[in-house]
Design a protein around this nucleic acid. Structure first.
Lengths: 154, 154
DNA sequence: ACCATTTTGACCTTTCCTGACCTTTATTAT
DNA sequence: ATAATAAAGGTCAGGAAAGGTCAAAATGGT
């Protein structure tokens, strides 16, 4: 238990503690100081954040460089059974143009997203945009864009 | 309250206060006096102005040297379609990540787009998406996506 | 032994802040 | 009027203080 506690686990634990203590479910840290308190390389913090505090895991990261910089970790309440989450999961690694259009339309019709959002999604994956990409990666880029855009609707 | 308040933040705050107090959305300061009141080097004021009160951020600066000199900061309120058209034109064929972020933020701050739209735009050109593209075409794809998304807000 | 995860370190980019020096404008002395 | 001086604001280079990235080495599980 304590024996195979990796650094990553410790870091994760500390961050979760901070989040639990916080009224607003927000932890703000200074990377170097935090890493120092734990005794690890600063970049290790980035590793943990990018592997365990992703939007898919229900967190939003915001940071700033330079003097007085910081890293903010926000926990967003996400309902694992929410419709949007299901849809995101159903997209997978690739999606073709037609399926995407239908998916967006369905989201709109079922009231999951409003009209403006639907139109924005359409334009983000419009022909104009896709045309500027190598054909081989279109389906995967479309999937990535769509998933990113759906994520914030949670 | 706020733990690590940078000088830049303090200066920004003071200027915004002045702008809010003003009927004309115009703040007029004297650089040395203002810097003195805050306790920083006078040139720090220029730094803040040129990094946070640019036209891209929605402000216009006007100043005069010599005896009785001053610096005037005006907040410009963009209006409607023509503003968006202007912004679209200003994007051109390519745009880097930071300029894009600032542009979106400015559109939101000036009321041209709502918060959800701003967040959707951010996610459509997020790191996750850009990372799935060949580096050489990122700036142009970002420009295309952004312009497409802005177009529908007309 | 192999594969995925973890961990580190070297190097990069962004942001902040100051101080020395420069330019412009107004005022004052001759 | 003109020249000198004072009173602003402007610029720029440099250093310091953050956080970001990436690839290679270490580790751990099966």
């Amino acid at each position: 238990m304590v024996m195979n506690m990796r650094l990553s686990d410790l870091i994760t634990e500390r961050i979760l503690e901070l989040l639990d203590e916080s009224e607003e479910s927000t932890a703000e840290i200074q990377r170097n100081e935090f890493a120092n308190g734990i005794g690890c390389a600063p970049s290790q913090i980035n590793y943990v954040l990018s592997s365990r505090f992703t939007p898919e895991h229900g967190f939003i990261i915001e940071s700033r460089r330079g003097g007085g910089g910081y890293i903010k970790i926000k926990r967003v309440v996400l309902d694992g059974s929410s419709a949007i989450m299901h849809i995101i999961n159903s997209i997978g690694e690739e999606i073709d143009a037609m399926s995407a259009r239908i998916l967006i339309e369905n989201c709109y019709q079922s009231g999951l997203i409003d009209k403006t959002s639907a139109r924005l999604m359409d334009s983000a994956i419009s022909k104009n945009v896709m045309h500027s990409l190598p054909p081989q990666i279109r389906n995967s880029v479309r999937a990535t864009i769509l998933k990113e855009m759906l994520l914030i609707q949670l």
